[in-house]
């Protein structure tokens, strides 16, 4: 007689103590997040109006709801891509070719950008975590070069050489905690032993007001950006 794999897992999981009811906690955090997003969206709309910029999606009547939704998503994604391309391009170290190239962003691949430096390409991306639940790494317990700073986006931790194994590419991360979301910016070298972004480059990137605005934009358009820039 055989036992089904699922039955055996169920039997072993029966020893798992039940989880306390999370409904109240989740509702409370959910309401707060919705309030913050509405406020952020209002602020962004006001800023755009002041700047005289028209929303790319405005005026699309659309022949149907699906078309309108698709157009809106494409518009929002294009705006996020443009914002982040500008943020990254503004903080490339000296010697880099100007500008960055967007890649990914389709077929379930998150959007990322490629910059070209003297020691090879560097891949950059930013993801906004809507649920704000990731444990933020502490400098003392992580990398040799690490810095905590206050940025317009909120408290940030800049980590370098995230992967200690020398066989892996040099990677730096910026963790930003603010406005009910977490944002992680990844800067990953392609070339072996390349380390082209200094701590100063990374803190400059973290401190950019345009990055804060991009995070607010992502928070306000989490649906359109899900799997692309938000998670």
């Amino acid at each position: 007689m055989t036992t089904d794999l699922r039955d055996r897992l169920a039997t072993e999981l029966d020893h798992l103590e039940p989880l306390d009811d999370l409904t109240h906690h989740v509702l409370s955090r959910g309401r707060a997040t919705v309030r913050r997003r509405r406020a952020a969206a209002g602020a962004l709309v006001a800023a755009v109006v002041v700047a005289g910029t028209a929303w790319a999606s405005a005026g699309h009547g659309g022949s149907g709801t699906v078309d309108a939704a698709d157009q809106r998503q494409a518009s929002v994604r294009a705006e996020w891509s443009e914002r982040m391309a500008q943020v990254f391009a503004d903080h490339l170290p000296e010697g880099f070719a100007p500008g960055v190239t967007a890649t990914g962003g389709d077929d379930r691949q998150a959007l990322e950008f490629v910059a070209s430096g003297p020691q090879g390409e560097v891949r950059l991306n930013a993801t906004v975590y809507l649920a704000e639940g990731l444990p933020v790494p502490a400098c003392a317990a992580t990398t040799p070069r690490c810095q905590v700073l206050t940025t317009p986006s909120g408290p940030a931790t800049v980590l370098t050489k995230v992967y200690q194994d020398d066989r892996l590419s040099h990677a730096s991360q910026i963790w930003i905690q603010g406005d009910g979301v977490q944002t992680i910016v990844n800067v990953v070298e392609s070339g072996p032993r390349a380390d082209q972004f200094s701590m100063s480059d990374l803190t400059g990137l973290a401190s950019d007001v345009a990055l804060r605005d991009a995070i607010l934009f992502a928070s306000a358009h989490d649906g359109e950006l899900l799997g692309y820039a938000t998670t």
């Binding site: 798992l16 103590e17 989880l19 999370l22 409904t23 906690h25 989740v26 509702l27 955090r29 959910g30 997040t33 919705v34 809507l130 649920a131 639940g133 989490d222 649906g223 899900l226 998670t231």
Partner: peptide, 22 residues
């Protein structure tokens, strides 16, 4: 792990709440 599982569930419930209408 229980704690990690709990954190994940909490995170997912929140994102589902926020995405509920769509």
């Amino acid at each position: 792990e229980r704690e990690s599982a709990r954190d994940l569930v909490q995170q997912v419930l929140l994102s589902t709440y926020l995405a509920w209408r769509r």
